[in-house]
Simulated assay, not measured.
Amino acid sequence: MAQRQFQIVRCHASGVQAVVADTRHTFARHTHDQFGIGVIVRGAQKSASGRGMVEAGPGHTITVNPGEVHDGTPIGDAGRAWRMLYFDPHVVADAMFDVSEGRTRSYEFTRPVMHQPALAQRFLALYAAMTAAEAGYAGTLREELLLTLLARAVDGSASVEARAPVPAGIANARNRIDDDPAAPVSLSELAQTCGLSRFQLIRAFSRATGLTPHAYLIQRRILAARRLIAQGMPLAHAAAASGFADQSHMTRLFVRTYGISPSVYASACTA
């Protein structure tokens, strides 16, 4: 596989995206709207996460939660390769309802890296089932593997403390951005929403979310563009609808964040 190459693999389950990658790319700090779980199959990387800086190598399981700020830098010159599954939140919520025997739909990966061979093998089995040619038993197998994978990941993460909740004022500012990322908004407007000065907002927002208000706004626009592109919207229209000045602006940030161009991503989504 060539350097900086990503492939979105056809997945036989709704609300799930499968990715295979082999790259030297250094990813900027960014977020996803989905839960992600995968396994490093070659090489190693270090990355920021919601739990601090972590390192992952061959056989390590890696995870990310929706909205969790993370990045990724290869360790060494050869890059690294991984398999990853991204789940829409409702898929994980429905699975967790079963795993918890109806007690909750809430779920969070609390370990960004886990060195548990059995967990990695279970993930690779799920990845194979999600991307294999459709078969009569495949749907049942996928459901079984997903439920047991999430249950095992919960067990492996149980000893880690939950993150502190986002303060109400900061949550209001974040919601203001989330409601319409394409809309222009000033730092003063967000600060008034929180009852803080602009500088206080920057510090508090960064502590709570891992990003400054501007960086968070850009991430929400990139995520919006990604969804629109996946739905088949032309790139120029997706850029405008997501609040970018033009297509080239969207493209620069998209490549920096995901390591591939919007046009490559669009082609992968329709393959």
Rank of each mutant, 00 (worst) to 15 (best):
I222E: 06
D71E: 02
A171N: 07
A224H: 15
E144M: 13
R227T: 13
G72N: 14
R256A: 15
T104D: 12
I170W: 02
A241T: 08
V264Q: 15
A129V: 06
E68A: 11
S263A: 13
R24G: 09
A135Q: 15
V166G: 04
F123K: 09
A236C: 01
G136W: 01
Q34G: 04
Q200M: 13
G102H: 09
F6G: 03
F109R: 01
A78L: 07
T212F: 02
G43D: 01
Q192V: 03
Q219D: 11
V64E: 07
L201M: 13
R226C: 00
T26C: 10
L201Y: 08
D88Q: 15
I75P: 05
H30F: 00
S248G: 00
A266T: 01
S159R: 14
W82H: 11
I170R: 10
L223K: 05
Y216W: 11
R207K: 11
D98W: 13
G243M: 07
F205H: 11
T257W: 00
S106K: 13
R163H: 08
S157F: 03
H60K: 13
A268Q: 15
S49G: 02
I222N: 09
S49I: 00
G50C: 12
P117D: 12
S157P: 00
A28Y: 04
H32P: 02
L149T: 14
T193L: 05
P112Q: 03
P112F: 08
Q192I: 13
G259A: 09
Q3Y: 04
I40M: 01
M84L: 15
R220H: 12
S47Y: 12
T209C: 04
R227M: 03
A135K: 10
S14G: 08
A44C: 09
C194Q: 07
E68K: 08
D180C: 09
S157E: 10
T26Q: 11
M250V: 00
G72W: 01
R105Q: 14
T251E: 11
D246S: 02
F244W: 00
C194M: 06
Q219H: 01
R24T: 00
H90K: 10
I62E: 02
G50K: 08
A48I: 08
G50I: 03
G36L: 14
G243Y: 06
V166P: 02
T110F: 11
A266Q: 12
D77H: 13
M84R: 04
R10H: 07
Q247H: 04
P184Q: 01
D178N: 14
D88V: 10
A191G: 09
T257D: 03
M84S: 13
F123G: 02
D178A: 14
A191N: 12
E68Q: 13
E68S: 10
R221H: 05
F205Y: 01
G232T: 06
L223E: 12
